[in-house]
Design a protein around this nucleic acid. Sequence first.
DNA 1: ACCTGAACACCGTTCAAGT
DNA 2: ACCTGAACACCGTTCAAGT
Lengths: 221, 221
Amino acid sequence: MFTPLTYNDVNIINMARRERIPTGQRDSYHHGDLKRALTDAALGLVKEKGPKGFTLREVARRAGVSAAAPYRHFSDKTQLLAAAATLGFIQLHETLSAAAAESADVTEQVLGMGRAYVRWAVTHPDYYQVMFGSELDKGDNPELLTAGLRAFDDLLDAIVRCQAANLLPAGDPREIAGPTWSLLHGMASLTIGTDLSHVGISEDPQVMAERALRRLLFGGT
Amino acid sequence: MFTPLTYNDVNIINMARRERIPTGQRDSYHHGDLKRALTDAALGLVKEKGPKGFTLREVARRAGVSAAAPYRHFSDKTQLLAAAATLGFIQLHETLSAAAAESADVTEQVLGMGRAYVRWAVTHPDYYQVMFGSELDKGDNPELLTAGLRAFDDLLDAIVRCQAANLLPAGDPREIAGPTWSLLHGMASLTIGTDLSHVGISEDPQVMAERALRRLLFGGT
DNA sequence: ACCTGAACACCGTTCAAGT
DNA sequence: ACCTGAACACCGTTCAAGT
């Protein structure tokens, strides 16, 4: 709605949807899709060891390729990480829009998206850390930026629907989306880092998020 | 109030308050305080290059010592980073308690703390990233954990004062502190990562934080 | 008790050379 | 056009040896 799909998005989305080709079935990548194999391996490595244990050489090893090969497809380590983060944002976007589609009540749509946001984050902590914790230069990577914008647009759309129903004050929806996203991101990130539990807060982040959203947006009790 | 000072805290706090001794003035650390010199160098390095460019060998170099020397004082790189993060939490705590002391109105105290929180975070992005972004095992480092708890207690105390004044619902203050901290942390962290501006939100995070806190806590408009 | 020197097993990145 | 091999300048960490 706010950011139309670009040609690159379509590529990325196709990339995400194409079925996985087991890497062992090819004896050579000369005619295969090494770029894809590398992002796949990167995703697996992030899932296994977290963004901290992510190594370009190990990714190359898993793809069955020399340490120098990735440089034909990514200018450096960060760009490969950015590709992984991009796929994460696409998954998050799909999760959010699916959550919004689950109810006809616009209020319940925002709340459901809030729950879905923290649920996805805490069940995919490694992706989430790559997406937000790795000081990726989003300005440096248009595909990553667009994928992030699409996820944000889900939130924005839900807010606009509430405004249209007079359940939220009219005006620039981003003024509402900013604090909303901050709340969700903060909860997700503090939960993943176990900071909340260290401080004696053990509540389910999903119910915590819903309660807080109710107060923040609709003045609920 | 919730977590009394331990012996270690006192050490850390003294460490933070002691005046800096220029490292060049000693020809040998055999009788000096290498541990202190290392944390000083670490702080400087974090400030210059961010947590990503933080290197144990470079820290040792700056302290004028061999690459192996730090291992007499820190079991590994993470523990030195944790020492830096600990000093960050002490600074944050001092900032927050100072902010709370600026007003007699308890409502204004929480709002002022909120503003102070995001202000400190965005003016010390490198510290903030070390404190929250570097997957430091807080359970692994009691001094870090305690320093973090002390900062959190500032928030908790302010909330308790509002409860006592019947401006917030009675009950476990942590149920209110959780979402509050999440909101502030989310705003700080998205601002530092420039995610908010990428999404078209350019509002001053301090005024954004105050407005959102008003709504979240006091049902303000 | 505290530090150095040298070593080990890794990194990210570059570049000539191969096919 | 795409990949390899070898090299470079780094890391974190360990450990015998020095003072």
